Amino acid sequence: MGDLNARTGSKDNDTIVGKYGEQITNTNGQRLVDLCHGLSLKIMNGFFPHKNIHKFTWTQPTRKLSSIIDYIIMKQRSRINNLDVRVYRGSECGSDHHLVVTRLEINYRRKISRGEDEGNNYTLVERKYNLDSFRDESTQFLYKLRLATKLQQVQKEQSARELYNEIKTCIHEAAEEALGRKRKLQRNSEWWTKQVEEVVREKKRAYHHWLSTKKDEDRKIYVELNRKAKRQVERSKNERWEKTCEEVEIKKALKESKNKKAAGPGDIPIELIKNAPEILLELIKELFNKCIHGDQVPEDWNLGYISSIYKKGDKKLCQNYRDITVISAMGRL
């Protein structure tokens, strides 16, 4: 994907260039087609029918020029299905190039093996809670109340693994009820206030209006609103930074543990333990004592998620990678 300044044209029954592209070609375009032919690639822009305003990726209104020079390129044989490629003019970023968006269908299922001796697999399902809501004291109180109520029913007279599984279940249930799941499209930036949202929305309306009219006076209105939006964003960021500096108070309990780190096996983020009531710490202490006195440690503590991180050099050589193992957050305590 990229701006290649190449115009590849259109062809019928071709494996590289589709029939829905533009009619003009240039030298860079022919070079790109030859490169794709040698690497068994295909240029996806021309394989989907759209209006011209949704095909041309670059426009020059003053000279009335338009062309397709930004491309989505994929392997000809791939497990990833490309469902569509089109241009969206409404997304503005101060460029004469328009946003090119592709829709992909990826059949992805991640499995982690427990080991050859056990001979079974399980699917890793990560639960992401809305941990940012812990900044609200009422949410902290609700989480502690729900968790304390559930933990009071936990029986200490059981094995370490059974005790751990009960504690884990209580934590997840309390987090689900008090925090809820984190939305995929949730805006986490704390500086994004209602004032910022309103001025950005007003700027976008002006931009869309200018796209439809192409009048100089409408463009001036958009430029002025764009400057206003940038000033508002900068002001909001500075205010949030000053407030954050004033709120720096570090709790002594679990001070060494860092937030927003991978939870590891068990899927319990360290924030859920830091904000828990005292009864959870008492049960964790009981759990640790059972393990120290010879009881079997919880199964999650024996697992680790291993990821290979590329360092430098030839990517085909194993020595150019380093491994990172993520263990259970509770087990790290």
Results as ranks from 00 to 15, higher is better:
1 M>F: 01
3 D>Y: 11
5 N>C: 14
6 A>Y: 05
8 T>K: 00
10 S>A: 07
10 S>N: 09
13 N>D: 10
16 I>N: 00
21 G>Q: 14
29 G>W: 00
30 Q>A: 01
36 C>A: 14
41 L>Q: 04
50 H>C: 02
51 K>C: 09
52 N>Y: 05
56 F>A: 07
58 W>G: 04
59 T>V: 13
60 Q>F: 08
60 Q>P: 10
60 Q>W: 14
63 R>I: 12
68 I>G: 06
74 M>H: 13
76 Q>G: 10
77 R>H: 15
79 R>K: 11
79 R>T: 10
80 I>N: 00
93 C>T: 07
95 S>I: 08
96 D>M: 13
97 H>T: 12
98 H>M: 06
101 V>C: 02
102 T>W: 08
104 L>V: 07
108 Y>D: 05
109 R>M: 11
111 K>M: 12
114 R>H: 12
122 Y>P: 00
122 Y>H: 09
125 V>C: 03
131 L>R: 03
135 R>A: 04
140 Q>W: 11
141 F>T: 13
142 L>P: 01
143 Y>M: 01
144 K>F: 01
147 L>A: 04
148 A>W: 02
149 T>M: 09
152 Q>S: 12
155 Q>K: 11
161 R>K: 15
161 R>G: 07
162 E>P: 01
163 L>M: 00
163 L>Q: 04
167 I>N: 00
171 I>P: 01
173 E>M: 05
176 E>I: 15
177 E>F: 07
180 G>P: 04
182 K>L: 15
183 R>Y: 10
185 L>S: 02
189 S>Y: 03
192 W>L: 11
198 E>W: 08
207 Y>A: 05
215 K>G: 09
221 I>Q: 08
221 I>V: 12
223 V>F: 05
226 N>M: 01
226 N>H: 06
230 K>L: 15
230 K>D: 14
235 R>H: 05
243 K>F: 10
248 V>Q: 15
251 K>V: 10
255 K>G: 08
256 E>A: 09
261 K>I: 12
262 A>Q: 04
263 A>L: 11
266 G>F: 01
266 G>T: 02
271 E>H: 07
272 L>C: 11
274 K>S: 09
279 I>R: 06
283 L>K: 12
289 N>G: 00
291 C>D: 01
294 G>E: 08
301 W>V: 07
302 N>M: 09
306 I>C: 10
307 S>A: 13
307 S>G: 05
309 I>L: 14
313 G>E: 09
313 G>I: 05
314 D>S: 10
315 K>A: 11
318 C>F: 02
319 Q>C: 03
323 D>E: 09
333 L>I: 12
